[in-house]
Nucleic acid binder design. Structure first.
Lengths: 232, 232
DNA sequence: CGGGCCCTTGAAGTTAGTCAAGATAAGTGG
DNA sequence: CCACTTATCTTGACTAACTTCAAGGGCCCG
């Protein structure tokens, strides 16, 4: 989204040098665990969730290549959420002092970090509006569209058909519904010809109609970064 | 939360020099409006909300002294939400180039911006979990505690009793409920001796019991900022 | 003192949750 | 590679939580 200078590019390559692979189902970070590193997803899909006192779970975020997480390590000692790999995933590992160094040597990169953060914050408010004010059906539809778009960002081969790597219970935990009700909503969307399902994959059959059900906005679009300082 | 250097302090004073006063009910920013400034709340209380296609509203954030908003002007041209003053409020106005300049001259201040952002992001996930996975009663209780704590941050006189500057409809729009149901929940909390109400003010009569109903965490606590670069 | 908002309460309607049971699919150890 | 175990999906019947609709009352402001 922004043309990096050679200096910035080299720095980023160094920063992201240390990588780590986690396999499907592995817990990378547990809620309240001490953390002092940040991660960038390079490959794969992950999710972050919180557990409430009554044992229920809310998935607060899905992570795809390019996403940074555990940025909250810049603020808290204990992780606010649990992070689990939904597929085998490759991560870059960054420690906190690196961010401090970056802020001094490459101010523009830090500004970009602020930008990323902001995108996420706005996406989080979209999800809040969805949870607070939309129907079960709309929430499920929104999730499907969102997942598809974000997978596509990493893999342009993906078009109308994509692997849903979630159980219906997980969809429920992301949308604030029960697995049973998610099942009914998927079935409805299928009966109405908007989607089809085939062994773990979802086919978007009528994207326009699906989009009409939702108030989904792709927050990675229409960025305006003209104000950034020059790169170094 | 961090000891600023004289240089940083002076810079901040300059940056926040331009102020603006808005009166109760005034709309500072309308959804989709073009925006190219950021604001810091100095006095008063505000809220940010989005409107959905069906006319319903989700309040996504309340703003108190010290909060920065419209940071999304760093990313988008159009405001993602509408911002309204709930009481007369005084704001500092900052333009986007100032942030770029800050990143170069005072890297630590930019890091602090990142920190603030992160606090908000985590608070947003708390609210998501509340909306998705807690009862109407718990959501209302959480909102009351949160409002009280955040008012207290600006005004240490506030203790068990605080001015609720919201209509029940607004409480509903923040918690994803209808005004009618908010009314019933407030009544319940009152009958159970947890709160009392008197002409627009709320009295927290049994904070421990109220807290037990909620999964409220004060995200402005327990920060760990040891990694910050030195100030200039 | 009249009008408009806000609050309150009851009754009825919807949406989503709970419980339960059977059918599939996906792992796992032999 | 098969048999077994366990997770996941599916569906129906019933229940609970929250919404909708409606009407009356209080209060503030002009």
């Amino acid at each position: 989204m922004v043309e990096l200078t050679p200096g910035e590019r080299n720095t980023l390559i160094q920063v992201e040098e240390r990588t780590r692979t986690v396999s499907r189902g592995a817990v990378l970070l547990r809620e309240h665990d001490r953390m002092d590193e940040l991660f960038v997803v390079r490959e794969g899909m992950m999710m972050a969730y919180v557990l409430l006192d009554d044992g229920s779970r809310q998935i607060v975020r899905f992570l795809f290549p390019g996403d940074i997480f555990a940025l909250s390590a810049l603020v808290y000692r204990g992780s606010p959420d649990t992070v689990v790999a939904l597929s085998t995933a490759v991560l870059s590992v960054i420690d906190r002092p690196t961010i401090a160094r970056l802020s001094e040597e490459h101010p523009r990169l830090l500004c970009l970090l602020l930008v990323l953060n902001q995108i996420e914050r706005v996406a989080a408010t979209d999800r809040m509006a969805g949870l607070g004010r939309t129907s079960a059906r709309a929430r499920v539809a929104t999730l499907l569209l969102d997942l598809r778009n974000r997978m596509r960002r990493a893999d342009m081969d993906i078009d109308a058909i994509f692997p849903l790597r979630l159980t219906q219970e997980e969809i429920g935990d992301a949308t604030g519904l029960t697995a049973v009700h998610v099942n009914r909503m998927l079935r409805q969307l299928e009966e109405d010809g908007m989607i089809a399902r085939e062994s773990g994959r979802v086919v978007i059959r009528d994207e326009a109609a699906l989009a009409r059900e939702t108030n989904y906005v792709d927050r990675y679009n229409k960025l305006d970064l003209g104000w950034l300082p020059p790169g170094r």
